[in-house]
Write a protein that binds this DNA or RNA. Structure first.
Lengths: 165, 165
DNA sequence: GGCCCGCTGTTATGTTGTATCATTTGCTTA
DNA sequence: TAAGCAAATGATACAACATAACAGCGGGCC
């Protein structure tokens, strides 16, 4: 079941012209399943925030999430959003894009991985890629420096294939 | 001359217990030489900001720079600092550490390179490393995605060799 | 002199993120 | 059932990071 969801999502993410409704639904279903497995609460607010982040494949700012959330949840304030984002990051359901101070749905939720991001400055989309060779090279470099890795931020900015034409 | 400076600095940067006064002096001398070559102005404000960033091997926040700068330059305001930082980044004399919203002197100024950063969460120091293999792996990953790279952010957080003991 | 250009001064504001304490909710346990 | 507890949310205030916009100044150039 989880495997199926993963593959479905992966396929969608790989193509820009995809059924994004299905993309969101898949991500939410997977999130629900994961949280259920782990015994943590994907509360309505958290689920709504996750859905907002998944509205597109562009990283979304926290205050943009707040604006969206406030449409259905008048009491929403910055801490409401940041708590939900922190939870979602902690559960590996979204990533923070440090170079944009923005947040992006994780296309590999539930699968241990290190992501890299390709961020198009033209259309704003960010593609999450998982390249084990790159990850290994990074570990090797850290090891040479006797550095204990806890977190990796790899963000490549430029032009996506579509926008480079 | 430039080569000598580079090597001197590199040696210093590689050891934590180094003569940091010399480290700063070297960086400033190199910066002056580079700006002179390029016909751009390393004004007193810019040079002071560069010196402040080089005060340690820890990334420094813009407002920390501002506080320091204001000690000798009462008129300093946020734009003063951000303009200087932008200039220094543009000339490749400092780097911005995206995951910390902070700035770090570039140990390889004047040499075309892509840096990676090893940032210790314990002591706060950031080591700049240049690993061509890692860089190549990154380019290869981007190429596979038909992505045109313009900027790379590679920041590894964890524990440095000293702090991991 | 008159012009332009690069740099800095100055005021105000925009954007991103946290601290802190109060309240609610649902579960446990006596 | 009531007391107690933990997790989540509400609410207010503020801290930290960054930029917009316009004014003034000084040096080089015709």
């Amino acid at each position: 079941m989880l495997y199926h969801l993963l593959m479905t999502n992966r396929t969608n993410a790989a193509h820009k012209a995809h059924d994004h409704e299905a993309c969101i639904d898949t991500a939410l279903a997977r999130a629900r399943a994961l949280c259920d497995d782990r015994g943590v609460q994907l509360t309505p607010i958290r689920e709504k925030v996750l859905a907002i982040v998944w509205k597109s494949h562009k990283p979304v700012g926290a205050y943009e999430v707040l604006d969206e959330l406030a449409r259905t949840h008048k009491a929403a304030r910055p801490p409401t959003v940041y708590r939900a984002l922190d939870f979602l990051i902690g559960e590996g359901l979204i990533h923070k894009i440090e170079s944009l101070n923005a947040y992006l749905g994780c296309g590999e939720a539930g699968v241990p991985h290190t992501s890299q991001f390709l961020i198009c400055r033209d259309c704003g989309t960010a593609e999450e890629i998982v390249d084990p060779a790159l990850d290994k090279a990074l570990d090797a470099a850290a090891r040479r420096a006797r550095f204990t890795v806890e977190r990796k931020v790899i963000e490549i900015a430029g032009l996506c294939a579509r926008c480079a034409h």
